[in-house]
């Protein structure tokens, strides 16, 4: 089955390891016959903050935010979400957090239940989430700090997707001290996982 893959990537440096991982995801996904779209947030100059205007429109319909329409369309089109980013201060870079805050909007990713007022998932088209990230610190240091960034995707974003959505977390720890061998091995691991998603 051909899958529709949306890759969301944020890193200021086009020569970075994170960008290489993003390119790898796009290449492998294309090779196994998936349709791939990419949101390179630094490349498109994505605004890193929720403006006061957007905040006041948080409960409004998506067509009140025409500047975000292409992003809304892609996120409703895809069935696989891939996030490729570096972990900074145990979370997503601000630009990627802004993508989560702004694009996962009312009537795109969620809607309010009329009777209870609870948030109900609306991204039921998404059945797979893959996160490809790098951590500067070791795994134990990240565990101690509570892995706040992991919760944003594995807990919050995943909850907005299909109830049978499977999420996979691929992380390279201690990347600041990593060797060429470790980085290559991690890329092979990412490739192995992405090849199976087709």
């Amino acid at each position: 089955m051909t899958r529709r893959v949306l890759v969301v990537h944020a890193h200021p440096d086009p020569a970075s390891f994170s960008r290489a991982l993003c390119d790898l995801v796009v290449r492998v996904s294309g090779e196994v016959g998936n349709e791939v779209r990419v949101h390179d947030l630094y490349d498109v100059g994505f605004s890193p903050v929720v403006s006061a205007n957007e905040w006041s429109l948080r409960g409004a319909a998506p067509d009140t935010k025409p500047h975000l329409a292409p992003f809304f369309e892609d996120v409703m089109w895809c069935d696989t979400l891939v996030f490729a980013y570096p972990t900074w201060w145990s979370g997503q870079p601000a630009v990627l957090k802004a993508w989560i805050d702004r694009v996962l909007a009312n009537d795109v990713a969620w809607s309010l239940d009329d009777t209870t007022g609870h948030v109900m998932p609306a991204l039921r088209n998404v059945t797979r989430i893959v996160v490809v990230t790098t951590h500067g610190r070791s795994k134990s240091a990240n565990l101690f700090c509570g892995r706040a960034g992991r919760a944003v995707i594995m807990r919050s974003v995943r909850r907005l997707c299909s109830w049978r959505c499977r999420a996979r977390w691929l992380a390279l720890y201690s990347v600041d001290r990593s060797t060429r061998f470790e980085r290559d091995r991690f890329m092979q691991r990412v490739e192995r996982v992405l090849r199976r998603i087709s």
């Binding site: 890193p48 903050v49 929720v50 900074w88 201060w89 601000a94 805050d101 706040a148 919050s156």
Partner: peptide, 18 residues
């Protein structure tokens, strides 16, 4: 708290000021 994390503005303060 937005989606289990700080708003992107605050995350940007961490990234750029710290």
């Amino acid at each position: 708290m937005w989606w289990s994390g700080p708003p992107s503005m605050l995350k940007g303060f961490f990234d750029r000021a710290l």
